[in-house]
Design a protein around this nucleic acid. Structure first.
Length: 244
DNA sequence: CAAATTGTTTAGCT
DNA sequence: CAGCTAAACAATTT
């Protein structure tokens, strides 16, 4: 159940299949599995929460959605939810309960790789432009916007806003420049902390505001409210997070 | 056991 | 028809 950093871990697990050929392909995703057979996996590329398996003739886009999961080298569960199972010479990659689609090179060219907060290509300048174009968006929606902060999910959103002391319902256009820069920096920074903690399975331990009862700074009760257009739950402290 | 949940897509409305 | 919202979807945990 993935935000961006979880997908980075998945890529690491899949890495050993890069350069390998597909021996067999199964699954109920609806794509033509036959197309993948004998195709060499040229590259695994990430964009936020999406994973692209780039083969010679086609590419597969995988999105784990809310409940997706994956396994490497496990015995295939005789489970209806197996969307895609790829067997290589050196093992298996199994994807459950996820969205699997075929895409072509033209589609890959349209992806704005610089919007991925965890990528080496992350470009905060583009994000700033997008703020300017939509000054009335609430910051909680901005952070969840996959075209701006690709890879950010609800946990990252809440923790970032707490770290920089900004109320989730603030309008992006009202933030002073200093706060904007903090927002851009922490969105990436926290994602890497998330990755680090996820790796050692201690993510929950480090939640400061998300699903917490009291603000760790002042002890006030944490507010939980569905915020923004996305109506996704925000956790915040009235006192320590300023409403711009 | 009902409710919530780390998300996106699509149908359907105005 | 553009732009929005509500619903659909999925599976595990609390």
């Amino acid at each position: 159940m993935p935000e961006g950093p979880t997908i980075v871990l998945m890529k690491e697990d899949l890495q050993k299949f890069e350069g390998e050929k597909v021996v067999s392909a199964v699954g109920n995703s609806g794509i033509d599995n036959e197309l993948l057979i004998n195709q060499k996996l040229k590259e695994i590329r990430l964009f936020g929460k999406q994973t692209y398996l780039i083969f010679e003739k086609v590419s597969v886009k995988i999105h784990l959605l809310m409940f997706g999961s994956y396994e490497i080298d496990e015995q295939t569960k005789s489970d209806k939810s197996l969307r895609l199972g790829l067997t290589f010479k050196n093992g298996k990659a199994l994807f459950y309960t996820c969205s699997v689609k075929l895409v072509d090179d033209d589609f890959l060219k349209t992806v704005d790789w610089e919007a991925d907060v965890m990528s080496d290509n992350w470009n905060p300048k583009n994000a700033k432009k997008k703020f300017k174009a939509n000054p009335k968006m609430m910051v909680c929606d901005v952070l969840m916007d996959q075209g701006i902060f690709s890879g950010v999910g609800n946990i990252i959103k809440n923790e970032v806003l707490f770290r920089i002391g900004v109320h989730p319902e603030s309008q992006i256009g009202n933030l002073p420049l200093k706060k904007l820069n903090e927002l851009l920096q922490e969105a990436r920074n926290y994602s890497f902390d998330f990755l680090k903690w996820k790796r050692t399975d201690e993510l929950k331990k480090h939640w400061q505001i998300y699903h917490q009862k009291k603000c760790p700074k002042c002890g006030e009760t944490v507010i939980k409210k569905n915020t923004g257009k996305g109506k996704r739950p925000s956790f915040y402290c009235e006192k320590d997070q300023k409403h711009y």
